[in-house]
Write a protein that binds this DNA or RNA. Structure first.
Lengths: 155, 155
DNA sequence: CTAATACTTGACTAAAAAGTCATGTTTTCG
DNA sequence: CGAAAACATGACTTTTTAGTCAAGTATTAG
């Protein structure tokens, strides 16, 4: 259970766009150099987010990428879904069938309860956090997230 | 952000041990056939959990694997750590440095706040759930987890 | 003491994810 | 109209993760 490379780098690229002038857009090269990534890789990440409708591009000399929506209207969940996927219980059950066609625990699976509980909580978090919330100094952002989502997983 | 195959299958194998007679232990072959996995793969998963000290084995004709601790004393976090790792913020920052030696956001990273918040919540969940909690019918387990962890990520 | 059961290990292969490359298209500046 | 800037894309290579294999060692029943 980890944050994947695509999720991490894709989010960073999107955040660059969110912080750039919304009128002019940002060229791939510029994003790549700001993040220390190869332009080819940044293209690929932007492509994924473009397919998901989060960004669009303008070709030609003064081209570049821009957000299609405001940073207040793009959730962390939107971004992660574009780049890989949020964990979903169905996916786990469908993919992890071992050597058989169906999972042996199909009808009654206690592990499913655990993943569902976890998965739903992670999903809720990701839908409540917006790109706009992630702009600013680290401390400020941390406070903002904690204020928004009080006592996550309270005991 | 997903549950990995190793985490899923490893947990299933451990749960088989938790449900088996603690005196006699369970042979690899038996676990494999109950879960629809290859014996070779089950060996590998058990090896990982053995290294983490969660289980131990007895060789010979009446051998097999057993838990070293009671199911009430093994957390979901213990299992996931043995099989892959819980997401940790340091790991993300160390591994995702792009083409550079250090991450460009080293000194001040707002994304780190988001991953830290999420990561800590997931970690708390995993430490609060024990293998013993996962034994029983799906509905029962679901209720148990929800009762234990009220309104996770409350709005 | 030997055959059968069962764990042990390191090296191997296969599949998926991450990241790159080459080639092409669009737009604008001079 | 070129040349340059910048996006577009499919195929490719590399790396990581998943899963298998072969050749062991330990234990016990007979």
């Amino acid at each position: 259970m980890k944050i994947t490379a695509q999720e991490e780098y894709g989010l960073r690229c999107l955040l660059q766009l969110a912080q750039a002038d919304p009128e002019s857009g940002l060229p791939v090269k510029e994003i790549a150099s700001r993040e220390g990534l190869s332009p080819a890789y940044v293209e690929k990440l932007l492509r994924l987010m473009g397919k998901a409708g989060l960004i669009h591009s303008i070709r030609g000399v003064h081209g570049g990428y821009r957000l299609t929506r405001k940073p207040t209207e793009i959730s962390l969940g939107d971004v992660v879904r574009a780049l890989s996927s949020l964990p979903s219980t169905e996916e786990i059950c469908d993919r992890h069938t071992g050597n058989l066609e169906h999972c042996v625990h199909m009808s009654d699976c206690s592990i499913r309860s655990a993943w569902t509980t976890l998965t739903e909580a992670v999903g809720r978090f990701m839908e409540q956090v917006f790109i706009a919330d992630l702009i600013g100094p680290e401390r400020t952002v941390a406070k903002r997230l904690h204020a928004r989502i009080e006592t996550p997983f309270q005991v």
